[in-house]
């Protein structure tokens, strides 16, 4: 049997290695680094059709991720989807007439909300609603429209 010092040293190294592995997994492969987004401000937008948008989908402006979708509900008053998104606090100068559209990253990629800045002097704040929105493109509808326009010719 090894003496106590070596034994405790090896066990200490083992536990340290376990914790280091956990730390490495948390930092380098999980989304811990991009957390800290819970203190952002929440804005809302209404869409006719959100396609495959999900809670935690990214919100991006010019392709840069600025926040995440936090909640998706169906609004019975306007018969629309009501999407809440949390925007990181450093991006707090989006004009109030900015527009939001649901886009797809790549051909088969996930869907995200793209924000296009407007020109007003006022800024979006906590609870603001984006008025100008564009729904997700649904392939069947596009094909349907295409067929109708062909039939008219």
């Amino acid at each position: 049997m090894k003496n106590t010092r070596t034994l405790e040293l090896l066990v200490g190294l083992f536990v340290a290695a376990g914790l280091a592995a956990l730390f490495m997994l948390a930092m380098s492969v999980s989304n811990l680094a991009s957390y800290g987004g819970d203190d952002g401000y929440v804005i809302k937008a209404r869409f006719d059709n959100i396609g495959g948008l999900k809670v935690r989908s990214p919100v991006a402006a010019s392709g840069v991720r600025i926040g995440r979708v936090t909640d998706i509900q169906y609004d019975l008053e306007g018969f629309e989807a009501l999407v809440s998104m949390s925007i990181d606090p450093q991006y707090n100068v989006f004009p109030i007439d900015s527009s939001a559209s649901i886009l797809t990253s790549g051909l088969l990629g996930e869907q995200y909300i793209g924000i296009e800045p407007g020109a007003e002097e006022e800024f979006l704040v906590e609870g603001s609603e984006i008025d100008i929105t564009q729904s997700a493109l649904v392939l069947e509808q596009i094909i349907g429209q295409f067929l109708y326009s062909k039939a008219d010719e």
Binding site: L22, L25, A26, S28, V29, S30, N31, L32, A33, S34
Partner: peptide, 19 residues
């Protein structure tokens, strides 16, 4: 390699449940 993993892997959902 790293950014794709970071974008998709949830800290609590995946790492936490695995633990």
């Amino acid at each position: 390699f790293w950014s794709q993993a970071q974008a998709k892997v949830e800290l609590y959902e995946d790492l936490g449940n695995g633990m």
